[in-house]
Simulated scan of single mutants.
Amino acid sequence: MADIVDIAVSAGSFQTLVVAVQTAGLVDALKSPGPFTVFAPNDEAFAKLPDGTVASLVKSLPQLGRILKYHVVAGKLMKADLAKLGSVTSLEGSPIPLHFSDDTFEVKNSTVIAADIEADNGVIHVIDRVILMG
């Protein structure tokens, strides 16, 4: 198996996220033993942001780091674990609301489109929108 970063790189659908993680200097943290639960927006999720948003975040590393850390939770939480919780606390420190109904698994304002992708140091849940704090 591979770690969270290696899986994101090899998938090919997380190029924007990988560049953001590299720019924010979080690669080593996400390659550490963890474990972590990552709500990973794919490239299509980043494309839904208003024009210029990604470029402005890259220019503001503290804000970029906060947003990226908002997508990460300490511990390896599979979908079944998350279903028992109403929210989780991000590494950024803010709560992330979770919602389950029928076949839908939502993380704040996004829908999980692929759950339980296991990595050596945690688990990835692919989401269809970048989740913003606040």
Score class of each variant (00 low, 15 high):
residue 1 M to Y: 11
residue 3 D to C: 07
residue 3 D to G: 10
residue 6 D to Y: 05
residue 8 A to E: 04
residue 12 G to L: 00
residue 14 F to Q: 08
residue 14 F to S: 07
residue 17 L to C: 04
residue 17 L to V: 05
residue 18 V to L: 01
residue 23 T to W: 04
residue 24 A to N: 03
residue 24 A to D: 01
residue 26 L to Q: 02
residue 27 V to N: 00
residue 28 D to S: 15
residue 35 P to A: 05
residue 39 F to S: 07
residue 39 F to T: 08
residue 41 P to Y: 01
residue 43 D to I: 11
residue 44 E to H: 10
residue 44 E to D: 15
residue 47 A to M: 08
residue 47 A to F: 10
residue 48 K to P: 15
residue 51 D to W: 02
residue 54 V to M: 04
residue 54 V to I: 08
residue 56 S to E: 15
residue 58 V to S: 09
residue 58 V to I: 15
residue 60 S to C: 02
residue 61 L to I: 14
residue 61 L to K: 15
residue 63 Q to Y: 06
residue 64 L to K: 00
residue 65 G to H: 00
residue 66 R to S: 15
residue 69 K to P: 00
residue 72 V to M: 04
residue 73 V to L: 10
residue 73 V to T: 12
residue 79 K to S: 15
residue 82 L to D: 03
residue 83 A to S: 14
residue 88 V to F: 05
residue 95 P to D: 12
residue 99 H to A: 13
residue 100 F to S: 10
residue 102 D to K: 09
residue 103 D to A: 01
residue 104 T to H: 11
residue 106 E to T: 10
residue 109 N to V: 09
residue 109 N to Q: 13
residue 112 V to G: 03
residue 114 A to Q: 07
residue 114 A to T: 09
residue 115 A to V: 00
residue 116 D to L: 01
residue 118 E to Y: 10
residue 120 D to P: 06
residue 124 I to A: 12
residue 124 I to V: 11
residue 129 R to S: 14
residue 134 G to C: 01
